[in-house]
Design a protein around this nucleic acid. Structure first.
Lengths: 245, 245
DNA sequence: GCAAAAGTGTTACAGATACACCCATGC
DNA sequence: GCATGGGTGTATCTGTAACACTTTTGC
């Protein structure tokens, strides 16, 4: 989360729900803020005056993950007038003053807390390729289980939940799964991703048929892991079908 | 389209794609701006500092249609840095100066055109109940055919097209049809709405079965119009299922 | 050979589509 | 009666779900 300066649009921010898939769990990146209490935040920041809103989200994403060309899609606007509680505002402006004494705080002339509107995005990344990076306001920055979220500032929990909801709507419909897996993956890994996101079992035979009938995967060599069972095939999205957002 | 004052968030607006259905055409409300050239705009305005973004959209909607409790849903953010062309900005700021000489124009300290970000919404209303109302900046305000849109300012045409796209995604999935029809309607009227929105024929028998099997309509008396053919039944959404946004 | 997991095939069901038909209304 | 459009029923198709089975791997 960045603070604003004159180069930024004053009352507008972006926040990103960055999803990764690891060990049958859907994870997302959160910052632990430098505060007495344990309070977490989604990666976010202000938008530059000359910057497309989506580019601001991409900038935040790159700052926190070090990767580009990620699937990115808007979740919607979080624009309730009272989306920032008095308590959260106190905590946050205190933190802001300590770390950025020379930057205009998010307070108006009458010394009231200032209205902030946030555009939320969700991003899908390969968990293996990303080590979350903290910035100045963070005590730490790491992956957290999307099913077991800690206490989050502002309306960030609502954003995370909206992210999950939209991911459930789109994972299958828009065939986004490759963005959450390594470049090559087994059918079981893909199935487990579906089972995690949709929170229900998918019978292996029907699942395989459904996916292969889409004709978007190419079958590669088998993956020999040393397990005392049949070696599964590896698959990869056909090279002409990559779908970064 | 309103201009900003200190009571408003400086660089943020809302715009509304207000849909109605009439004579087998999907219509939307546009303002013809008071300009030399024929340029049209979606109803919109700035957001008050103490106002939820969605409430700002509802306010615009009420100003232009005189009705409340309408289905309203966000389309997304229109936030490209160059979404307002130099030409459109000249036209619009000229208009603004004439009509609101005492209101701060959307120009920054360096006299450059100011960045505006807009949150777009779409609304579904009963065409019969709405007479579009013009405001000061409008030469006129009326219904226009969504398939034959005139030249529109800024990126308003993109918004209208996005509205159509989202309506197509949601009309059937979220069963929104009652919001575009009168309280009571015939099966044929409903079918014609579907045929217009999805731009394809729906066989009457299968369509009726599909809709009635949803179990969300109650059948009322027949509608005798004097036509020399069988009188169709009237239907109404079951009273417990109203779905205003 | 055997246990574990991968992979294939075949049947059963449900929702959508297509075709054929009957009914009410005003002249 | 008859033309017009409304309304209903039944067969067909297609994609999904359910069940049964074979194959490969390491010990």
């Amino acid at each position: 989360m960045f603070l604003k300066s004159s180069k930024h649009i004053p009352q507008l921010t972006v926040d990103c729900v960055i999803f990764g898939f690891h060990h049958k769990k859907l994870k997302l990146i959160l910052s632990k803020l430098k505060l007495e209490k344990d309070i977490y935040a989604l990666p976010g920041g202000f938008v530059l005056q000359e910057e497309d809103i989506e580019d601001a989200a991409k900038r935040v994403l790159f700052e926190r993950t070090g990767i580009e060309d990620v699937y990115l899609e808007e979740l919607g606007t979080f624009g309730r007038a009272n989306r920032i509680s008095d308590e959260d505002f106190q905590l946050f402006s205190h933190l802001a003053k300590e770390l950025y004494p020379d930057v205009e705080p998010p307070i108006n002339e009458k010394n009231q807390k200032m209205r902030l509107v946030s555009i939320a995005y969700y991003a899908l990344v390969d968990f293996e390729k990303v080590i979350p990076k903290k910035i100045d306001l963070d005590e730490s920055c790491d992956w957290y289980d999307s099913q077991d979220l800690p206490h989050m500032i502002f309306d960030h929990r609502e954003m995370a939940e909206k992210g999950l909801e939209v991911l459930r709507d789109n994972l299958d419909k828009k065939l986004l799964f490759n963005n959450l897996l390594s470049e090559t993956f087994t059918m079981r890994e893909l199935q487990e991703l579906y089972e995690t996101v949709y929170d229900k079992p998918f019978p292996a035979n029907n699942f395989q048929k459904k996916i292969l009938d889409l004709n978007i995967l190419e079958r590669l060599d088998k993956k020999f892991t040393g397990a005392k069972s049949k070696a599964p095939y590896l698959y990869r999205l056909k090279s002409n079908l990559s779908n970064k957002g």
